[in-house]
Amino acid sequence: MNPYPVWLVAHSVLLEAIRRREIYAIVLVATLLIAALMTVDFFQLEGLTKFYREVALSIMSAATGLTVIVLAARQLPREFETRTIYPLLAKPIGRLPFLLGKLLGTMLAAAFCFALFMGVYILGTLYLRGEIPWGLFVQYVYLQFLLLLILAALGFWLSMLLNLDAAITIGAIFFLFASQFTTMTSYIYDYTGPLGQKAILALTYAIPQLTLLDLSEKAVHAQFWEPLSLRTMVELTFYGLFYAAVYFGLAMAWFRRRPL
């Protein structure tokens, strides 16, 4: 497959994300929220740095995750609604490179959003004279991208199945409650019957455990944690890529046979 058409479509998605200014608004609101929380004065400086790290990373992860879900879920419905898809797919580009371009563009926009957040995070940490645990921090950023890739692929698939509002809502629920789901299933597993256990196991495999890809807690309490081993990182990479590929494959299967 020629990568150039994929890049051209991705570039158009990135251009939209940069020019529509929504990302700046999200980053600004999140930054103001973090700044407001920093004024809480019942911590010592060390406590405040940790508190800042924890709050900032949580807000940033949530804001970027939701941004990616919205960006991904609206790509195709908006193309259908405004009919911009017709002149585009009238060119010699297949539906697969087109969708791959959309996915890549969404990830580039996510990277842009994330980069802005990281700028805020690093500046904030330096302002509080805190240290950044670079090893864990780089791993956190990398795994966060894998998580965003799963969310983007899921967003595309949901937008093929549901209307835009429903796709965004389900995607957001999936993202925000993933950790609660994991915790809940591990608690109730022992108390359910064999059928229930099988159902929980099936759900555990069907739904990716996004918490596995979230190193924010470790990055906050970096003094207690070593960076993950290379082997774990490779395994997590395969884990993330597997689910992203499954969701993307489902999105493509729907999109391929969809009349326009």
Binding site: S12, L15, E16, R19, R20, T82, R83, T84, Y86, P87, A90
Partner: peptide, 12 residues
Amino acid sequence: YLPEVALYYPFM
């Protein structure tokens, strides 16, 4: 190809 009705990306 020229479609019957099409908008073009307003941000471009």
